[in-house]
Design a protein around this nucleic acid. Structure first.
Length: 538
DNA sequence: AAGGATTGTCATTTG
DNA sequence: GACAAATGACAATCC
């Protein structure tokens, strides 16, 4: 449909059919692609006409001002009846970007509800600027909303800022309004640079707007540019960005998003630093899976344990909770490094005591691979329980303090039932654990001693056997010597005839005093007589 | 999977 | 009799 006439005929045909209420099957917009454009053009023309009428009305008032020495009574009706046109006038790019209105969602929604409107031209801006009562009204509303000042106070401020006591003059209104804008945004300098005379300001505005090619900054822009980023700082909505260090500390991301100008104006390192801190906090607060489980569960468990301990003292239930919590802690904190560190800390004392007094019985090799690691974990569980219940003593102190010191400590700390039960339980189990360890050590020691005693007894037995054998051997040798001596003595004995004695009939016997007697065998005392040896060896 | 070693814990005894 | 230490018995864990 490149031919305009053909397109026109087509649209006419659709119009005719539409007016005849002929069902086309679909909405008319499908056939009439230009319908919405034509409607928009119509609406734009209506807006232009409206603004032209407004412009003429204001020009008439201005002319009236010039001719009648500037005295003019403000019309409240005009103030109240121009809300909609002013909402359109606020569609300056500068204003929408930096105005407090845009910072206030309610006002923004109220004033900029017609988002689809085009930005006003400079001519429109001129007419809008000149609708000063409207502007003042909205600025008053704005100020009263933003700064929480009563409208009367703001009006009073405006009157105070007027160079003339009479404020009926619209140029005075302009001065008051501009001054109010200036005061409200704490940026008076851009306006004062233009002129101190309100009439000159207005003329400058008219000149500027009537000359589109004028490169000088327009008054509207000057006014609106008063809403520089700095001005946002004074707004209540923005104070949180600049002054609430506490909040910013906890919510750095809020700073970055709600106060973008600080990213540029403040030292540039701040923003990345803040982001970095934020990211670091994310890491610290546990976006890592294991850490997050640990931290959250730890805090939850601590809170639960505290709350629970404050309420009642059911031991079983408490221990159940504690057990669950410590299990979570155990899971979350059990990296290899933690395990190794725990092992080093907790077992150092054990190694120390073992090195001091132990035995030749040396347990098996690699400590980290033995079941001692399980014992370390159990010891660590008591540490976690003690921390969860906020016990005033460490587990080491709970277990190792003397009885008097321990009793004094727990009596001076005002423990509740749960804490008292737990601290007694930890001390009892800890003591019993140490007692069991020392008991086993003593048992091993006694076993070693018994084995050493056995070895000593065996050695002694061997020595006795050897001595016995030696003695037996020596006894045999002595007996042999005695027999030989006996035979020698008996052989050398002679009677009165010089004949030797028959050993079968006589025998030698010595008494206890050393005297040796020759006795006939029949009458002789058989004691101490080696008769069994005599005849046979001779 | 079975079994030994180690350790913690409970119940009981001992001092 | 109370209490801590000692000890036997059992279970859990690891190798």
């Amino acid at each position: 449909m490149d031919d305009p006439s053909a397109q026109f005929q087509h649209e006419d045909l659709i119009d005719i059919l539409w007016r005849q209420n002929v069902d086309l099957g679909v909405e008319r917009a499908i056939f009439d692609g230009c319908l919405r454009q034509r409607e928009e053009i119509t609406r734009a023309r209506e807006r232009e006409l409206k603004r032209e009428r407004e412009f003429e009305r204001i020009m008439q008032r201005l002319q009236k001002l010039d001719k009648e020495t500037g005295e003019c009574l403000p019309s409240p009706s005009s103030v109240n009846s121009q809300a909609v046109p002013f909402s359109e006038t606020l569609h300056s790019t500068e204003f929408t970007q930096h105005s407090p209105v845009t910072q206030n969602p309610l006002l923004s929604a109220l004033l900029f509800s017609r988002k689809s409107q085009k930005p006003p031209s400079q001519e429109q801006a001129f007419s809008e600027l000149l609708s000063l009562p409207d502007l003042q009204y909205y600025l008053d509303v704005l100020e009263s909303d933003v700064s929480s000042l009563p409208l009367e106070d703001i009006t009073e401020i405006c009157h105070q800022n007027l160079p003339e006591p009479q404020s009926e003059n619209s140029t005075d209104e302009l001065c008051g309004v501009t001054q109010t804008i200036s005061d409200s945004f704490e940026v008076a300098q851009p306006l004062s640079c233009i002129s101190s005379d309100p009439v000159e300001i207005l003329e400058t505005c008219i000149q500027a707007f009537s000359d589109p090619g004028n490169p000088t900054p327009s008054p509207s822009n000057t006014i609106y540019s008063c809403s520089t980023p700095e001005s946002q700082v004074i707004l209540p909505q923005c104070n949180i960005n600049s002054s609430d260090s506490t909040l910013s500390e906890f919510c750095p991301y809020t700073i970055n998003t709600s106060k973008p100008e600080q990213l540029n104006s403040a030292p540039e390192r701040d923003a990345p630093q803040t982001l970095l801190q934020f990211e670091e906090r994310h890491v610290l607060l546990g976006f890592d899976d294991s850490a997050s489980v640990g931290s959250v569960d730890l805090e939850t468990s601590l809170y639960a344990a505290d709350t629970f301990s404050n309420g009642q003292s059911d031991k079983d239930e408490l221990e159940s909770i504690q057990s669950d919590n410590t299990d979570l802690l155990h899971l979350s904190l059990h990296s290899d490094a933690v395990e190794a560190t725990l092992y080093e800390t907790v077992t150092s004392a054990q190694h120390q005591t073992q090195n001091e007094s132990t035995p030749k019985y040396s347990p098996k090799a690699n400590p980290l691979t033995t079941s001692r690691a399980a014992g370390v974990r159990r010891a660590y569980r008591d540490e976690q329980r003690a921390q969860a219940m906020s016990l005033p003593l460490s587990v080491h102190d709970i277990i190792n303090l003397p009885v008097e010191a321990f009793n004094e400590a727990i009596s001076s700390c005002k423990l509740n039932n749960a804490q008292h039960t737990l601290i007694r339980d930890i001390r009892r189990r800890g003591k019993n654990k140490m007692a069991a360890q020392s008991c086993r050590k003593r048992k091993l020691d006694s076993l070693v001693d018994l084995e050493e005693e056995i070895e000593g007894l065996k050695r002694e037995e061997q020595q006795i056997k050897e001595e016995n054998e030696r003695n037996t051997r020596e006894l045999h040798e002595t007996k042999e010597k005695l027999r030989k001596l006996y035979n020698e003595v008996f052989r050398q004995l002679r009677d009165e005839h010089g004949n030797s004695y028959n050993p079968r009939e006589y025998k030698l016997q010595h008494s206890t005093d050393g005297t040796v007697y020759l006795l006939p065998r029949g009458t002789a005392n058989k004691t101490n007589t080696p008769t069994e040896d005599l005849p046979f060896s001779l």
